[in-house]
């Protein structure tokens, strides 16, 4: 049972890392908490469902298409809101309220467009036979989702640490002002980062019906909170920390489900509160008031 919980925890952890990474990237570059992140994940879930039921697309095909689409949407939307928010008196707080409004709109539109019902996808689309890992049997969809998440995480790593643009992105994360002074096109890099954040949300969303049992318009709030817990666990603004945070979260989730299943719902919230209160320094000191 322990081996099963730990392995399943790693598979789920990779998925939660993917969901958290988009939120963290947007925060690191824009200094804004995208409170609508979970709602974008939810849209990815509906994309997977609709593409499978209406068009017969394999979820992995949907994933590539949805990620590309969201990348474009994010890149184009960025100039419409970000400069205005950045110019306000308290950008951090104002942008939080702004994304909160966006989240409400997306959720309302999802209810209007897709209805309030839980939608799930026929799971054996990834292969009917369970996969054996370390002597335990897991649904193929879990293993494929874990593997695909790992590939996506690797792709983001290569972008951030092995490409010119990624190098510039990290420069903006380190100091927006100095990046501006050095002549980097901070606006374009930020727009791209916002697009990538949404693309990661969509990619995670496409996998979500398989790991979470389905998708409905109400899952967004919980996913945003979980993503935030994962990000804070790792430390905000640090992409590699998010992977660690996701793995810790996934493993503790599975351990809770195996040994204390009635209290599983509490986990993301308790984890978030404990980390924020006990180790706010894990946030690189940014979460703490200095007065």
């Amino acid at each position: 049972m322990l081996v099963y919980a730990l392995t399943a925890g790693v598979l789920f952890g990779l998925f939660y890392s993917l969901v958290g990474l988009g939120l963290n990237l947007v925060f690191g570059v824009l200094r804004m908490v995208n409170l609508a992140h979970g709602q974008f994940v939810m849209l990815g879930g509906f994309a997977a469902y609709l593409a499978y039921v209406r068009l017969g697309w394999h979820p992995l095909v949907t994933m590539v298409v949805a990620a590309a689409l969201f990348l474009g949407i994010g890149y184009l939307l960025y100039p419409l809101f970000a400069p205005r928010l950045a110019a306000s008196t308290d950008p951090e707080m104002i942008s939080l309220v702004f994304f909160f409004g966006v989240a409400e709109m997306i959720q309302a539109l999802a209810v209007i467009g897709f209805g309030n019902n839980q939608r799930s996808i026929y799971a054996p689309v990834f292969g009917a036979a369970p996969v054996r890992l370390l002597g335990e049997r897991f649904p193929a969809a879990w293993v494929v989702s874990g593997g695909v998440s790992l590939l996506a995480l690797l792709a983001v790593y290569l972008y951030l640490y092995r490409s010119r643009l990624g190098y510039a992105t990290r420069a903006v994360m380190a100091s927006r002002e100095e990046a501006l002074v050095s002549g980097l096109s901070v606006g374009r890099i930020s727009a791209l980062a916002f697009g990538i954040g949404l693309a990661l949300a969509a990619a995670g969303g496409v996998l979500s019906p398989f790991l979470l049992g389905g998708v409905n318009p109400g899952v967004g709030v919980g996913l945003t909170m979980t993503a935030f817990a994962v990000v804070v666990l790792g430390s905000l603004g640090n992409p590699l920390g998010t992977v660690l945070g996701g793995l810790i979260y996934g493993v503790s989730l599975m351990l809770m489900q195996s040994y204390l299943s009635e209290w599983t719902n509490l986990l993301p919230y308790l984890l978030l509160l404990v980390v924020l209160l006990v180790r706010p320094s894990g946030l690189l000191g940014r979460g703490v008031r200095h007065a």
């Binding site: 706010p280 979460g287 703490v288």
Partner: peptide, 23 residues
């Protein structure tokens, strides 16, 4: 102690606290 957190952190932590009490 949540008041030690600033802006967005406080907002999200208070949301988490209310959900924790609910569960």
């Amino acid at each position: 102690p949540l008041l030690r957190l600033s802006g967005a952190y406080f907002a999200i932590a208070s949301l988490a606290a209310s959900q924790a009490v609910y569960y």
